[in-house]
Design a protein around this nucleic acid. Structure first.
Lengths: 153, 153
DNA sequence: TACAATTCAATCGCGTACAATCTATAAAGA
DNA sequence: TCTTTATAGATTGTACGCGATTGAATTGTA
């Protein structure tokens, strides 16, 4: 499909491009995350928590576009790895608040070099990266606005 | 992470953008693929076969950047749905050739409208789509060239 | 021709994604 | 207050991705 001579519809090309690049990204991160014992989704959850500790499962899900079906088992793994704690909110017992442990906070320093290393792999000028990121984010909001009966926020 | 005030590293932003858009795309396709009983990865495999029938598992994997661990079970599902046949190559018994059944070929017409419908959801001008697709493909080849000890072709 | 190295597909195990469902809790309304 | 509705998270089932391994078939090489 990459160097395809026939006129495949553009939307299909674009979707597949995202589909395959997303996996390629995850492979690129893997080489740096493996030594930390993290998967990419786990790393992204930690990024969120390093920004703001003590979020609920729902708040994490809103930021990452993931639901509890994905997050609950993932968070349990992060918990048994010792990086986070899960505890029911005292004020609202429906919610579960996620807080970093000492080792979870410490992991941040070890992970600090990762984006730079991945940036090397990409080897693109910063302004090109920035423009691309913006375009892609625009695309996402279009996709979220339509469709998706779940994750409507 | 979307409207994030703090200076998160650019590579992380870009990777997460791809990660989340890729899922958003898959949700967007789902509404059109569900009636056909297909998942997005199954649809992509059929796209390849509609282009060129009788490919081996490896050849499909090369085009889609997937390995047999992913493809074998997926192809078995397409087989039990009646869309394809799997058969060892007579010349080289290591290979398995995938060929479309009559219903597999017939499915193509039902799927023909999908890219246009998704295009509507995107609502972007064609030349913008084309430029974006190109940029993303460029990014993928950079990512594949580095890293990824598997899938080296 | 023998035999080692390679290739291809299948299999296994783990970790996501996500729809659908369930339970507990909280909020809203009569 | 009592009941209805809504919300948060957990659970279940299905389907990817992919690293690692296995087994069979083929190729390369001495």
């Amino acid at each position: 499909m990459t160097a395809n001579p026939s006129p495949l519809a553009l939307s299909n090309q674009l979707c597949f491009a995202f589909y395959s690049v997303s996996h390629a990204f995850s492979r690129a991160y893997r080489q740096f995350l493996d030594p930390l014992g993290l998967t990419y989704p786990q790393y992204v959850v930690l990024l969120v928590l390093w920004e703001q500790d003590g979020l609920t499962v729902k708040e994490i899900g809103d930021r990452l576009f993931l639901d509890s079906g994905t997050l609950t088992p993932l968070l349990k793994r992060l918990e048994s790895a010792g990086h986070i704690r899960r505890a029911r909110d005292k004020k609202d017992e429906r919610q579960v608040r996620i807080s970093l442990t000492k080792t979870g906070r410490a992991l941040r320093e070890k992970a600090e070099e990762i984006p730079r290393q991945v940036g090397c792999v990409l080897g693109l000028p910063v302004d090109e990266l920035r423009a691309l990121t913006e375009q892609v984010a625009k695309l996402r909001s279009r996709l979220h606005d339509s469709a998706s009966p779940s994750l409507k926020s």
